[in-house]
Simulated assay, not measured.
Amino acid sequence: MLGPILLAAMQFIPNATTCADSGNLPQQMMNACAAWDFEQADAELNATWPVVLDYVRTHLSEEFAWDERPSGEERLRAAQRAWITLRDEHCGVWAYHMRGGTAEPLLFHACKTRMTRERIEELRALMIEDQ
Rank of each mutant, 00 (worst) to 15 (best):
A34T: 09
W36L: 04
D42Q: 14
M1K: 13
W49C: 07
H90L: 09
E44F: 01
A32S: 05
L86A: 09
P105Y: 01
G92L: 06
R117I: 03
R99K: 15
I120R: 04
R117S: 05
L2V: 09
I84C: 13
R77L: 07
P70V: 00
D54Q: 14
E74S: 10
V93I: 09
N31S: 12
L6S: 14
L2T: 04
I120F: 06
D42G: 12
L45E: 12
T102K: 12
M30F: 00
I120Y: 03
A34W: 13
Q27G: 02
A125P: 03
M10N: 05
P14W: 07
G72W: 00
N31F: 06
I120N: 03
P70T: 01
D67I: 08
E129Y: 07
A20P: 03
R87F: 10
R119D: 03
L123N: 04
G100Q: 00
L45A: 14
L6Q: 12
A32F: 01
V56G: 02
G23Y: 03
F12E: 05
Q28L: 06
R81K: 11
A35S: 03
Q27P: 00
N31W: 05
E118Y: 07
D21K: 13
W94D: 11
G72P: 01
E62I: 14
I128V: 11
A78G: 10
A9F: 01
E68V: 07
W94T: 15
E68Q: 14
V56M: 10
G3P: 02
G92M: 04
